[in-house]
Design a binder for these strands. Structure first.
Lengths: 205, 205
DNA sequence: GTCTATAAAGTGATAGAC
DNA sequence: GTCTATCACTTTATAGAC
């Protein structure tokens, strides 16, 4: 992308992701962050310009890939006669699951959940710019599969699915991984329950 | 409760609720808070001891009443043969809806959502102490009404209902009140959709 | 119970040497 | 590109007058 050192930049982004997940955007200071990354305090302003710009970059790096994977998965099934509501939910949710296979990706899901909780309009606008077209494409496919639902009714239900999804993927919940279950198996369980639950909520008459 | 001035204390609590909802626990400073309340900076430490204690008091004030109302509503229907899953969900959700009839109550629901997003263990423990017995009583009633579900399966589904509920009640969602719809009518719509959606997600085979 | 004043520490950001 | 040193400011909390 450029000739500057990728190492320092990447280490800052990784440390920021972890600390923002753990302590929030306000709660994590640049000193904690640069100390954890093993870089100089001034490096954040040199590489990103400001703390706010760093926050944006933490989102952009993950969301670009996540949304691309979701749209690829949707493109493979959209419009086909055999496609079910469960398939479309899977196309939306599985890329998020796979992202969180990597520990850093899992932290990012918590950062994303925080972004929802912050009602900051600037951040919401930024997320809408990144997520907006994805949500619209998925909504169109749900509308095709659930023709008995009015537009308003469908929007309500998709909104509630979003809530359940955010809650589950960020590990808000009370349910913790059992000692006998591997991390990956736990995530597969999560996705299975999430898809069944959401499909029932979306499809009921 | 005591001989001290309730006015200053209450004004601090009201201002804290609004600012914590808007800017988060870290984001809202004691200076912003006391300035908004029209009281002296030192008053927070005098009346509550510290900022953390103030946060706890903001929760305690609302949760005591909210949980009491939920348990009263549950007691009226629990164990009766005509009771449905929708009835139990209504008993859980409606008190939260009624709390948010008042503007300050609505703000509190956003504070509560923030508390979920903060993975702070101390705060989670505090909420578990306040919420724990309520969740257990509701879970027992759901188990009675949904005998075909295993214990683990039921816990998963209740967890996902919690996610949808928190999302909807805190106004995270994309869905905004239409200009032709009153605030109260919008809330009634929210609760109707939430109950139907959750009942479908809980009950499916 | 409320005030001013201030302590002690932390914050984001930047100038300037290397 | 990385460093130290520092500015200008904000933070929570408290001591002590009234």
């Amino acid at each position: 992308m450029n000739g500057s050192s990728p190492s320092t930049r990447e280490r800052i982004l990784a440390a920021a992701e972890a600390l923002f997940a753990q302590r929030g955007f306000d709660g994590a200071s640049l000193r904690q962050l640069t100390s954890a990354a093993g870089v100089n305090l001034a490096a954040v302003n040199y590489h990103f310009g400001s703390k706010d710009k760093l926050v944006e970059e933490v989102f952009r790096r993950r969301l670009d890939a996540l949304n691309a994977h979701r749209l690829e998965a949707l493109a493979r099934i959209a419009g086909q006669p055999s496609t079910t509501v469960e398939d479309v939910l899977d196309a939306f949710i599985r890329p998020a699951l796979e992202l969180s296979h990597d520990d850093h990706g899992a932290l990012f899901m918590r950062v994303l959940a925080r972004a929802f909780a912050e009602h900051d309009d600037t951040l919401r606008q930024f997320l809408s710019d990144n997520y907006g077209h994805v949500i619209r494409q998925f909504t169109a496919e749900f509308a095709r599969l659930l023709p008995h639902l009015g537009k308003a009714e469908l929007y309500w239900r998709i909104d509630l699915v979003t809530g359940a999804l955010t809650h589950a993927m960020s590990g808000f919940g009370l349910i913790r991984r059992q000692s006998g279950v591997s991390e990956q198996a736990h995530r597969e369980q999560t996705i299975t329950h999430l898809i069944r639950f959401s499909a029932a909520g979306l499809s009921h008459p």
